[in-house]
């Protein structure tokens, strides 16, 4: 029989062994090198991918498409993804130390990343920002493939105005649950949203709350705001992502609000996931917009190929975004169903 001490040692040894085995057997999807690919033009080139971590569904699909798209070129990608802003700064600095041919970054904290981007410039390492823009102070130091966040905000406002007008409402109150307000992505979406909402002053935004890209927090805030304004006090809601808009739908249903239809709450989002597409088909979500990870990953990979291949692509490219409603949901269902 083993004593407790022996058992502890056995467990510890087993855990270490398991960890080593896992490491040894793990499929290293983070780095790829495919000399047998259809193009070897980027053979020997290296990229540090300091993108969103794969714990985020958007980031997971972006990373997958981006990596798979570049794999045949022979470029070596080092996976340095994370969803923690502090860790991202550390990893970015590590990336600079490794001196890759290109750092690809999806910025989590624009201000915190300003100094590391300056360091990269000093070190002569090119940086490509994807999805969200960098801090304006370093905007000239990076290349960028950006989502059109102002357009996404405009689409959300168009959805709300169109939905309320279709219900024949001459007036209406709107609540907004935003992503993290300190992020430029959020600020740009609100800029576009406010610009379009200003064209329909009969519809008034009465609340704008920071829900921090958090579905649970979105549900809590929605429950409280719907209670605050009552059934006749709010007619439309904007949750910045589908996973924030759907908790609004659930909160409304649980509070006894009708959702969608001829007189229900008009709920919209501004970047699509499969659940949002299903909700549009069910008539519970008025609309959303693309900003799907697959499209921007494809465009970013294409940009990388052109840049590392010696071309001189435009300093900034913006991904074309599309508005999605019941009228065209089938057209975007596949594109929006990977995350």
């Amino acid at each position: 029989m083993f004593g407790i001490g022996s058992l502890r040692h056995a467990l510890l040894t087993g855990a270490l062994g398991l960890a080593l085995l896992t490491t040894a057997c793990a499929d290293n999807t983070g780095s790829s090198s495919s000399p047998d690919g259809d193009s070897s033009s980027l053979q020997g080139k290296t990229i540090a991918l300091v993108g969103y971590g794969s714990t985020n569904p958007w980031g997971a699909y972006f990373n997958k498409v981006f990596t798979e798209r570049l794999e045949p070129t022979g470029v070596e990608i080092t996976d340095m993804t994370t969803m923690d802003p502090g860790t991202q700064v550390q990893k970015f600095n590590q990336a600079i130390a490794q001196r890759p041919d290109l750092v690809v970054v999806s910025i989590l904290d624009t201000q915190a990343m300003a100094v590391p981007i300056k360091k990269a410039r000093t070190a002569g390492i090119p940086v490509l920002a994807v999805d969200g823009p960098p801090d304006p102070s370093v905007a000239d130091d990076v290349m960028a493939v950006l989502s059109d966040n102002e357009k996404l905000g405009e689409f959300a406002a168009q959805n709300i105005i169109e939905g309320l007008e279709a219900q024949g409402r001459d007036s209406g109150k709107v609540i907004v649950l935003t992503g993290t307000k300190s992020m430029l992505v959020t600020q740009h979406r609100m800029k576009g949203f406010d610009r379009v909402m200003a064209t329909a002053p009969q519809y008034q935004v009465v609340e704008e709350r920071d829900a921090n890209w958090d579905p649970k927090l979105s549900g809590d805030i929605a429950q409280q705001l719907l209670a605050k304004y009552g059934r006749d006090g709010v007619q439309a809601a904007y949750g910045m992502a589908d996973y924030m808009a759907l908790p609004i739908v659930q909160a409304a249903k649980q509070a006894g609000f009708p959702v969608g239809g001829k007189n229900g709450l008009v709920v919209t989002s501004s970047n699509c996931f499969k659940a949002g597409i299903d909700a549009i088909k069910a008539g519970e979500l008025y609309g959303t917009a693309t900003e799907d990870p697959g499209t921007i990953a494809e465009q970013s990979a294409d940009y990388v190929q052109r840049f590392l291949g010696g071309e001189n692509p435009p300093r900034t490219e913006t991904v074309k975004e599309e508005r999605v409603t019941a009228a065209n949901v089938d057209q975007f269902a596949e594109q929006c169903s990977h995350a």
Binding site: K216, Y243, P247
Partner: peptide
């Protein structure tokens, strides 16, 4: 209940629970 409320589950669903 979280899964039912959100109709899907991501790795970050638990949030600040």
């Amino acid at each position: 209940f979280l899964a039912s409320f959100n109709t899907s589950a991501t790795v970050t669903l638990g949030g600040t629970l």
